[in-house]
């Protein structure tokens, strides 16, 4: 509650340390380990892909960074703080947004929700916030749909609304869980340009990505995850057939050819 009460959205304390530091992290669902003994560091200002097979724990990793999942062991700091305190600097685009699409809200209403973290209690979004929200919608190519009820969008458009909401948050760390799923090629290009813009502005962007082919094109850093953290680092050094095989098993062969 305290984080939200401090209404002003001051940036995280600058430091030389990594944006995210994870040590010995273990997360279990019931008695099944989903993340096991993970050590991981994300430096500031990278545009990083997280790849790994289905069920590798990628979503769980993001949710743990947000403090929405409690680890059974290990520690996480985000901007040098415990996850729950760092949330105001994070924008999160979930993999599947389980909202009621019949909710009485327009596209703009939803994107405006991204501004709430800047407002604190009681204050309403003002003209500036609307402007920022429309700008975010423009970045994902959806301004013309701003006043549609959200249920009247296609699946890809709905996904873009949630990306726009995250953009409107003006965060320092972006966590996006498969934001390109169900999005056409043109939109994907547009979105990746937006992400590059964020990186250029010094923000840190982590994207769960399922298309291995495009990893070297889109991202400068990559993490290979499969319950354990197989490897992470610059794409040029880490995105190798060997590590991919360790992550995916034999299926990775399709790529290395």
């Amino acid at each position: 509650m305290a984080t939200f009460l401090s209404a002003r959205h001051e940036p995280p304390a600058p430091g030389d340390g990594p944006v995210i530091k994870v040590t010995d992290l273990t997360v279990m669902y019931g008695d099944r380990p989903v993340l096991w003994d993970v050590d991981w560091e994300v430096p500031a200002g990278v545009l990083m892909a997280v790849v790994g097979p289905n069920g590798a724990g990628k979503t769980t990793m993001l949710r743990t960074i947000l403090g929405l999942v409690r680890p059974v062991a290990g520690s996480i700091t985000v901007f040098g703080r415990p996850p729950a305190e760092a949330r105001r600097w994070i924008a999160y685009v979930p993999q599947r947004t389980a909202v009621d699409w019949d909710f009485p809200a327009t596209v703009l209403d939803v994107v405006l929700m991204g501004r709430y973290s800047h407002l604190g209690w009681v204050r309403r979004p003002g003209a500036q916030d609307r402007e920022r929200a429309l700008e975010a919608l423009a970045q994902v190519g959806m301004v013309h749909l701003a006043h549609r009820q959200i249920g009247q969008l296609s699946v890809g458009q709905q996904q873009r609304v949630f990306v726009a909401r995250a953009l409107a948050q003006d965060a320092w760390l972006y966590l996006m869980d498969e934001p390109f799923a169900g999005v056409d090629a043109t939109t994907e290009q547009a979105l990746i340009e937006v992400l590059r813009g964020l990186k250029a502005a010094g923000r840190t962007v982590i994207v769960v990505h399922h298309d291995l082919q495009t990893v070297p094109l889109y991202f400068d850093w990559v993490t290979l995850l499969n319950v354990r953290c197989v490897a992470w680092g610059p794409v040029t050094t880490v995105f190798t057939a060997d590590y991919l095989r360790q992550t995916y098993g034999e299926r990775a062969g399709i790529l290395s050819g």
């Binding site: 380990p33 050590d39 319950v227 953290c229 490897a231 680092g233 050094t237």
Partner: peptide
């Protein structure tokens, strides 16, 4: 560990 693959947990 067998269930999760025995890959090393530390980066290069």
């Amino acid at each position: 560990l067998g269930a999760n693959g025995g890959a090393p947990s530390h980066p290069p």
